[in-house]
């Protein structure tokens, strides 16, 4: 049963190889461009793409999406899907901003309470999402899509279309203060990733996600309360979306209805491209990190080598399909709707 280059091992490492390939291909593009222009000495270190400044830029832009993608990772691990992130991110971001301003407007006051509040709001939306999906027995893609619409609508209701500015320098330190060239928010994201990794590998809940994704009926027959695991999964995802909302506000200092826009596609792309199978049971948060990096390296690299940014969504769209096709074991699927 064990082989060196089995399908499983190949799939496991493919995303990393793709990332490494991308990290090399963009500098090479740059170098050939430079060479074409007649530059004589070409060093890899001259690459604008590989400069610390640019890498920090990639890290910053990837941070909110990573938070969101971590959340949806757990859902996809269970073989479900969550399309509610755009609404949830917007609601948590707007909710946070209003609470933050109302409680004093600076982290040095009671306004810090707005942070756990935002995560709570995320968990609450996830709870509703999970209950609608599990108790009303509605397929998750539809339940969560509808919840996403409700969320965006609710955010719009809260703001009335206005932008809410969060200008507290202490909070904005997330972006403005840098350690070793990277802003604090990157370290916060790294810490959160570690926490999620811990949940995935060390806790009962985390392992139960794999059991549900690997064989829901078998897991239920072994006495696992699958419905509870599902609802908890959606709550955990909601908390991650809350983190995503906080990071998005931290990044631009504004909370509005469209704060959550585009997160749906980017996060699902990242998860699937990272190697977490849409059918559940395989993959995890580290895959998602790789996936998010792939998405944002492509995004950034295309700009660096001078390609228009609008191609990005087409590239990602095709990438998703390729990733799903590669991770599908066709013998095990009878038909697909």
């Amino acid at each position: 049963m064990q082989g060196f280059m089995t399908r499983e091992t190949l799939l496991k490492w493919a995303p990393v190889l793709v990332l490494i390939f991308l990290l090399l291909v963009f500098p090479i593009f740059e170098m050939t461009n430079a060479w074409a222009k007649g530059k004589e000495h070409i060093y890899l270190l001259d690459s604008r793409f590989l400069s610390i400044r640019n890498l920090a830029r990639i890290a910053i832009s990837a941070t909110p999406a990573l938070m969101v993608a971590l959340g949806v990772t757990f859902i996809i691990l269970m073989g479900s899907i969550d399309l509610s992130m755009e609404g949830t991110v917007s609601v948590t971001a707007v909710g946070f901003a209003y609470a933050f301003l109302w409680l004093g407007g600076t982290l040095a006051s009671w306004a810090w309470l707005a942070i756990p509040l935002a995560l709570l709001i995320g968990a609450a939306i996830g709870l509703i999402n999970g209950i609608v999906h599990v108790k009303l027995r509605i397929p998750s893609f539809m339940a969560s899509l509808a919840m996403g619409f409700v969320g965006t609508g609710f955010a719009l209701l809260l703001t009335g279309g206005d932008r809410v500015r969060v200008e507290d320098p202490l909070f904005r330190a997330l972006l403005t203060v840098r350690w070793m060239n990277f802003p604090i928010m990157v370290y916060v994201a790294a810490a959160f990733l570690l926490l999620m990794w811990f949940i995935q590998t060390r806790t009962k809940l985390g392992r139960n996600f794999y059991a549900v994704g690997g064989g829901e009926e078998l897991a239920a027959a072994s006495g696992l309360n699958v419905n509870r695991v599902r609802i908890l999964g959606f709550m955990l995802a909601g908390i991650c979306y809350g983190m995503g909302g906080l990071m998005a506000v931290g990044k631009i200092g504004i909370a509005e209805t469209v704060t959550g826009a585009n997160f749906m596609f980017i996060s699902i792309t990242a998860v699937v491209v990272g190697g977490t199978a849409l059918w559940g049971g395989i993959g995890g948060v580290l895959n998602t990190l790789v996936g998010v990096l792939i998405v944002f390296v492509i995004n950034n690299g295309m700009v660096v080598i001078g390609l228009p940014s609008y191609i990005q969504s087409a590239v990602l769209g095709i990438l998703v399909i390729v990733a799903v096709v590669l991770s599908t074991d066709r013998r095990s699927v009878s038909f697909v709707k």
């Binding site: 893609f141 596609f265 699902i268 769209g317 998703v320 799903v324 096709v325 599908t328 697909v336």
Partner: peptide, 14 residues
């Protein structure tokens, strides 16, 4: 290609 329609159409939409 056995990609569920909600994913394939989401991706092609982009």
């Amino acid at each position: 290609l056995y990609v569920p329609s909600f994913v394939s159409t989401l991706a092609l939409g982009f």
